[in-house]
Amino acid sequence: MAQVRTTTRGGDTREARIGGGARIRGRIHGEGDLVVEGQVDGEVAIRGDLTIAEGASITSEAVEAHAVTIAGTLEGDVAATGPVRLAPGSRVRGNLRGTAVTIDDGARFSGKLDCEFDLPPELGGAPRGDARGRPPARR
């Protein structure tokens, strides 16, 4: 089982890159950014930003990262602490959670989107006083 680690040193992030010809089966975790140009089958948990390049693919039970940009294929759930973006040509199947989710015209997607926000009070959202009322905890 392969393990790829990226480490930070005093705030510096080193970018890890999985090249086009690489196929990884296993768990990837680390502090920095990750660019996937090959194929990954396994959990991904990084603190930095994740980019899935065109032609690349990730199949995973769980993908955790800060910002996630997908131009290739992803099958699996994404829990991002930053924004998630699906570029045109991307194919994604799974549930996405992030601060914002952007799907460009031409992306193919099926799954749930879960952004935190409130509907206006006319539709039952939090009253105007609350800045960003948190929805009741689910799990």
Partner: peptide, 24 residues
């Protein structure tokens, strides 16, 4: 808040969604 289904779905920067989305 709701499901979204269409052959083409685009969600621009600044749009917020909670629900099942399916393109195609």
């Amino acid at each position: 808040v709701g499901d979204v289904r269409a052959p083409r779905v685009a969600i621009a920067q600044g749009a917020l969604v909670r629900g099942y989305v399916q393109t195609g």
